[in-house]
Simulated scan of single mutants.
Amino acid sequence: MLDELMEHGYDISAGTLYPILHSMEKDGLLTKEEKNVNGKIRKYYRTTDKGNDVLHEARAKAYELFKEIKN
């Protein structure tokens, strides 16, 4: 996830990202699955229905803001 964010110009450390993910999980926006991959525990996050609803709303608000700035 950090590599993907870097590709888009974000410089975020794991120390910043993981508290955000834990908070989103606590709020019911994400679920976490832990898998053992080559002896290392990997965490896989997925959005919940609530998380998808919040994302849709945030995108709509961002689009409205973009339209206002553009004009």
Score class of each variant (00 low, 15 high):
K61A: 07
V54G: 03
F66P: 01
G39E: 02
E34D: 06
Y18K: 12
L55H: 08
L5F: 08
K26C: 00
Y45Q: 08
I69Y: 15
H56A: 14
G15A: 01
K70A: 07
L29I: 02
A62G: 04
T31S: 11
T16W: 13
F66E: 01
N71P: 00
M1V: 12
K61P: 02
Y44C: 01
L29F: 05
G28Y: 09
L55Y: 07
L2E: 03
L5Y: 05
Y10K: 04
A58L: 11
T47Y: 13
H22C: 00
E33R: 09
V37A: 05
T47P: 03
M1Q: 07
A58E: 00
H8G: 02
I41S: 09
T47S: 11
A14Q: 11
D3E: 13
Y44D: 04
K61T: 03
K32M: 13
M1S: 06
T48N: 02
D49Q: 14
K50F: 13
P19R: 04
A58I: 06
L29S: 02
D49S: 05
V37K: 10
I69Q: 14
Y63S: 09
L21W: 05
N38I: 06
S23D: 04
G9T: 00
T47M: 15
L29G: 08
K43N: 11
L2K: 09
Y44F: 15
N52C: 05
T48A: 09
D53A: 11
L21A: 04
A62S: 05
D53I: 04
G51Y: 06
K50Y: 13
A60F: 12
K61E: 11
R59C: 07
E4S: 12
D11E: 11
Y18V: 04
M1P: 00
E25H: 02
K26F: 10
I41G: 06
D53L: 14
A62Q: 08
N36Q: 10
T47H: 12
K67I: 09
E68W: 09
D53S: 09
Y10S: 03
S13A: 11
K40N: 11
E34N: 12
L21E: 01
Y44N: 08
I20D: 05
E57M: 11
L29N: 01
V54M: 07
A62D: 02
R59Y: 13
K70R: 14
T47F: 15
T47A: 12
K67F: 14
S13N: 05
K50H: 13
K35A: 08
A60L: 15
E7R: 13
G51H: 01
N71K: 13
T48R: 05
K40H: 10
R59G: 03
G28H: 07
R46D: 00
G9F: 03
Y44H: 08
K35S: 09
A62K: 10
R42D: 03
E7H: 06
K26S: 04
K32E: 10
K67D: 03
D3P: 00
D11Q: 12
E64R: 14
N36P: 10
F66N: 07
A60E: 15
I12G: 02
K50A: 08
G9C: 01
K40F: 04
K32Y: 07
L5G: 07
A14V: 02
E34C: 12
V54Y: 06
